[in-house]
Design a protein around this nucleic acid. Structure first.
Lengths: 205, 205
DNA sequence: CCTACCGATCGGTAGG
DNA sequence: CCTACCGATCGGTAGG
């Protein structure tokens, strides 16, 4: 009997190969042959593990979003346990988001490239993918009802979406255009921006 | 002699058609025939106006970034003239960014889909495109040196990049997933986030 | 600015 | 009999 199921490792290799190639070249410009070659298997093996090239992308996105959402939730819970307060939990999520994209930049590139396209076969799957990520942030926003009461805070889902965008674009710009910077520096810039040390400088309320 | 140069209108139609199709399906999945058909010309006309499919995309991105940067600068200048202060200028740029994406969602989708890919033929052009947008924001950040002096403000280029990301992702999420919301509501959510009314709620400084 | 056409390569599946 | 694969090739379509 074989102890560790081999297909798990094969699928993981296919995920990694597909993410790396599609994130750089785009879905249609990446051939199934290339994905298979990079994963070290034959093309037929791709179709043994997934119904189609589309199916591979959907599974890949779902898999990555699961990891990201789990990472965000874990960071928030850790911060709360260590007494950081609700603001500390958000800060921890920002840092966890940066760290995730640091490890998996390909997933982030795929996410921004595909998420807002409206007429693709995997549109519904991607809406679910977005939901998992944004929900993790929304939960923390609701848990940490800030000062000033509800009347001072705008819509939670809009805020969560904007927060995800802040981290996503800052992290991608960092990895692609200024990779020599330490994560800590990017985190500081985001913390300052989100604490109003940039925009709060005299604008009308 | 022909009064209004026809090729200007033809290129504009090709820009619009290409942006609409490529932003939804991706570059490789969009055929030159489709672009030509939507623009109401024959395929050969595309190659009469542009050297290649790649060249059309590059010109399209440059054209759009020019419009966006101009719109941002104009908004900032208008706010300063009306005495809004540096904070008011940033707020005006956020609003102008939302309004631009409201008018040209296809450009925003193209931007996020292509900008961070590293091995494509038009990579350098896109870096220039990014530079034009981010520079417009950086100028305003430098002009409006906030309170607390330079030591309190983190890196300007990281902050500008994050600001662009905040507006970009919030606007795309808005247009795609909650199109019924008014622009004003999205703007309020972003203003609150950037004034620290969300993250400033008790985190460690 | 259009018609006609080429070199090459695509995603998906056959039998073993 | 089942699983996890491979070498070769199909019908259609791409950019130029």
């Amino acid at each position: 009997m074989h102890s560790a199921p081999r297909w798990t490792a094969t699928r993981q290799r296919l995920y990694d190969a597909a993410a790396a190639l599609i994130s750089e070249r785009g879905f249609s410009a990446t051939t199934v042959d290339e994905i298979a070659e990079r994963a070290g298997v034959a093309k037929g093996t791709v179709y043994y593990n997934f119904a189609s090239k589309d199916g591979l992308l959907e599974a890949l996105m779902l898999h990555g979003a699961e990891e990201l959402a789990a990472s965000l939730r874990q960071a928030a819970q850790g911060a709360v346990r260590h007494g950081g307060g609700p603001g500390g939990a958000l800060d921890a999520m920002v840092r966890a988001g940066l760290a995730f994209i640091d490890r998996r930049p390909a997933f982030a590139k795929l996410y921004v490239a595909e998420l807002w396209r409206c007429d693709r076969p995997w549109q519904e799957t991607l809406a679910a993918v977005r939901g998992r990520v944004v929900a993790a942030v929304e939960e923390e926003l609701r848990a940490g009802a800030g000062p000033g009461g509800p009347e001072g805070r705008p819509d939670v889902s809009l805020t969560a979406s904007a927060l995800v965008g802040t981290v996503l674009v800052a992290a991608l710009d960092w990895k692609v255009f200024q990779p020599e910077r330490p994560l800590e520096e990017v985190h500081r810039a985001l913390a300052a921006l989100l604490e109003g040390r940039v925009a709060g400088a005299g604008g009308p309320t």
